[in-house]
Structure formats: C-alpha cells, structure tokens
Design a protein around this nucleic acid. Structure first.
Lengths: 159, 159
DNA sequence: CTAATCTGGTTTCTTTAAGCAACCTTATTT
DNA sequence: AAATAAGGTTGCTTAAAGAAACCAGATTAG
C-alpha cells in the first residue's frame, strides 16, 4: 500500500481527504464528537489496532483536527479533544450518516434520531443550498471561472 | 494492510465509509460529478494505478454508486455514470471541499467559486440545520433514544 | 489491407501500510 | 509490594497499493 499523498494537490477535496480520508480518521473524529477523549476508549470503541490508533491520533494532531491535552494529575494522562477545525467536520460526518441511513439502512436498528437540543425537533437533511436556502443538486451548480464576467460561457458542471 | 471491513457495523457512518471511505472512491465520485465517465479519463485525471481504478470502479458499481453503461457502438466501450445514490453524495463532496478550502487553502489558487446555475449567486456553506433552517454545531445536537418519552434524560452529545 | 492506436482491462512484482500480539514505562489502586 | 491502568512502542505477518508490462477487441490511419 504505497499510498499516494495529495498534500500538494490543487484540489481541495483531495487535500481534505489527505487529512481525514482514510478508513479510521473520520471514525476517530466521529467518536470524539460523541465525547470520547481517551486513548483506551477510542481503542475499545473502534476496535482499531493500537499502533494504528497512535499513528492516526498523531496525524490528526499534526493536522490540527485534534489537540492533545495533558490532563495528567502528574503527567502521563492525556486527552484528545477536537479543535475548531475538527468540530468543523460536523456537517461532513452528519451528511455521511444521513447518506448511510438512507442508502444502507441497518437491517434491524432504526437510524439514529438526531435532534436540536433547544427545540427537541429533528434536524434537517444536510443539503447544498443557494443563497436563498433552496436545496441544489449537482446539476444546479456550476464553477465560475477565475475572471469570468457576466456573460456566461460554457458553465462547467461540478462537484 | 488487512483492512477491517465495516459492512456489518451498526454505525451508519462506518458503513458509509466502507463504501466510499477510502482514498480513491470519493475522488472518483467527485470526478464523475465533474462529468468524467470513461476509464482512461479517470485514470489520467486522478493519476491512479489502473488496477486500483478497476477495483474501485467495480466496487462502486457493486455498491450502486456508479452504473456501468455499455455505450459501445459494437461493444467494448463503456461509461461509468452516477446513480441517484451516487449523486446523493453531493453534499458530502461539497462539504469536504468547503472544509478543505477553509482550513487548507491552496497557497496560490483561489478556491473554486461554486454558484447556483439559476441565479449565478454563490452557494452557501453546507451546515447541519434544525427544522427552522438555523445552523447547528456539535453541541446543539443530541441523540434521541429509541423509546424516549417527553421527559428528558441525559441527552447524549453526538455527531 | 495492414499496421498503429485506443479502450478497458489483467498479470506480475515490489513496496508499504494495516492488524495482531507482546512488551514497556510511569502512575495509581489494592 | 503487587496488581492494574494508561499510553505507547516493537516486531512480525498479511494484504493492499503502485508501477509497469502485457493483452484482446475495435477503430483509425496510411
């Protein structure tokens, strides 16, 4: 597995995937959102190998998605907490969850029922929206070229 | 790399990552959204090894994210097109792009300027919203337990 | 009509990462 | 004082990723 790196890619999706796009990283972030903070807890909840967890935590800390906090009464006790950058992954995690619930629902259990703490009402489906808040599909969006004026040329479709 | 599978995981995020959570799959989907449909085009645009591309395309087809269309005049010409399930990954891809643009902006190029085809105005930041359309953070959301009544117990924080 | 090229792969080989288990060090608990 | 817990590290095995060569059927060029 000589993984290809995307650090230098001009595509921000590729660069994002470089930081959180492997099998474990987003799950670590997800569990951090659930409230998990300790090495052993991540390890047990995820069933991840310890050396891999070490590596992932270190990379997430390097990338400033997590921060390692010395919470040791006398050292040697740590917590991994989400940074703002990490918390900003929230829409991505939720969108993934909703996509999974929609297209690969668990055979038995119902989907997690996520709600607004303030009102107790369910959250909305995560969507891409225009300035008015209307949901958009792939086909409704185009890439505006760098110096594009008001005349529309061929509008490229895009993700 | 004896990768761990999450097919059977009760967590829909894990199951989603099982389908599109590896380094290449989401990039293939992204380029499909850009309009790419042919094997060679994916290969050149992504710089992916051909055998890996084969594998990823096959898996995405298996998972019904893509469909393989025989567009051959006399066979032996194929296109890979997004299914509805695949197109439904749009918010995830856009959220990833926005996250990448925000936290790891490309040194030189500006971020892609995505706009609503109908109005020409920029799209919004993808967020998690409550029923009224207000944006929510991790802390604003909780998991409602299965048979939870109206009395609130400990509301678990969640992603 | 033949040779070159394109498309969509498959095969082989090498490198590297994932997984597992054992071990280790510094607290803290019993 | 011995046992346990936290947070790793080390070494080994397995499996996946990458590179490059090869291949067969269709198309195009000469």
């Amino acid at each position: 597995m000589a993984r290809k790196r995307f650090d230098d890619s001009s595509c921000s999706v590729a660069r994002a995937l470089n930081e959180v796009g492997d099998w474990w990283s987003l799950l670590v972030v997800l569990h951090a959102m659930y409230g998990t903070r300790r090495f052993v807890d991540f390890q047990q909840e995820l069933g991840i190998a310890r050396n891999i967890l070490c590596d992932r935590l270190a990379r997430l800390v390097d990338n400033e998605v997590l921060k390692k906090v010395d919470v040791g009464e006398h050292g040697s006790r740590f917590e991994y907490r989400l940074t703002e950058k990490g918390r900003d992954l929230f829409p991505i995690v939720i969108a993934l969850r909703q996509w999974g619930d929609k297209w690969n629902p668990a055979p038995d259990q119902p989907a997690l029922d996520l709600r607004d703490r303030a009102t107790g009402r369910p959250i909305r489906q995560v969507t891409v929206q225009n300035a008015d808040g209307d949901s958009l599909t792939v086909r409704d969006v185009f890439v505006r070229d760098d110096g594009e004026s008001d005349t529309h040329k061929d509008k490229k479709q895009v993700g």
